[in-house]
Design a protein around this nucleic acid. Structure first.
Length: 219
DNA sequence: CGAATGATACCCT
DNA sequence: GGGTATCATTCGG
């Protein structure tokens, strides 16, 4: 299954990302994440995302200020910020604007595998995993889509290699059930940010589609 | 539950 | 320029 060529170029506009990260994270639910490499196309709608702010957000990498690693977070919105965590996992973020500082990003934590599921499974190398769990987690997702730090700084609005597209742009490629406009949005504290202190750790900046089988953790 | 695993940032010389 | 604590996770026992 592949995306019609004429529709591959449709990507979310940069203005979508030039807003506070919390609004962008919430609005990314249902938006398609698409990867097109030499190996093929793999894609699916985002079902879970987390907002990270600027230097004032103690849970955000931006708290370290502008360093070589965090440079994308302080750059133009709509670009990728890909980093290595725990020495072995790549995580994909989209740069957006944290408030009050003009820096921040949204961590894409899970998508629903819908296009190129066999390719995702091959990249993951875990044949017994259920389809719905192939991209249920930030590191699983990058592995399944073939995204790594070579994509750090990549412009996600170009419609090339890796990009984000509104559901309407991939309508003919998606099963009808996935195009249902209405879904319930749930929110809660971000994962694994207790080190940031109670104030920041308690903020409900993690958003997911309620009850969805591909969300990284069950409620 | 705990191990795996390595880049990063930061605090020293 | 070097040592080291930290870490937005995953998988196997």
């Amino acid at each position: 299954m592949s995306l019609p060529a004429a529709e591959q170029a449709v990507a979310l506009d940069r203005s979508f990302f030039e807003r506070p990260t919390v609004a962008v994270a919430r609005d990314l639910l249902g938006v398609w994440l698409i990867s097109a490499t030499d190996e093929g196309v793999s894609a699916g709608p985002i079902v879970e995302a987390e907002a990270y702010g600027g230097p004032d957000d103690l849970a955000s990498h931006a708290r370290a200020g502008l360093t070589r690693r965090t440079t994308p977070m302080f750059g133009e919105a709509g670009h990728a910020y890909v980093y290595l965590v725990y020495g072995m996992h790549d995580c994909l973020n989209v740069v957006a604007y944290g408030a009050p500082a003009a820096a921040g990003a949204v961590l894409i934590r899970a998508i629903e595998p819908m296009v190129g599921v066999d390719l995702m499974r091959a990249r993951r190398g875990r044949p017994s995993d259920a389809d719905s769990r192939l991209c249920a987690g930030p590191a699983r997702l990058t592995q399944a889509l073939g995204v790594d730090r070579s994509m750090d700084g990549h412009d996600l609005t170009l419609g090339e290699d890796v990009w984000l597209a509104p559901p309407s742009a991939v309508g003919s490629a998606a099963p009808a059930a996935a195009q249902a406009a209405a879904f319930e949005i749930a929110s809660g504290p971000r994962i694994g940010v207790d080190y940031a202190g109670e104030d920041w750790a308690a903020r409900p900046w993690r958003f997911w589609i309620a009850g969805h089988a591909s969300v990284s953790r069950q409620r």
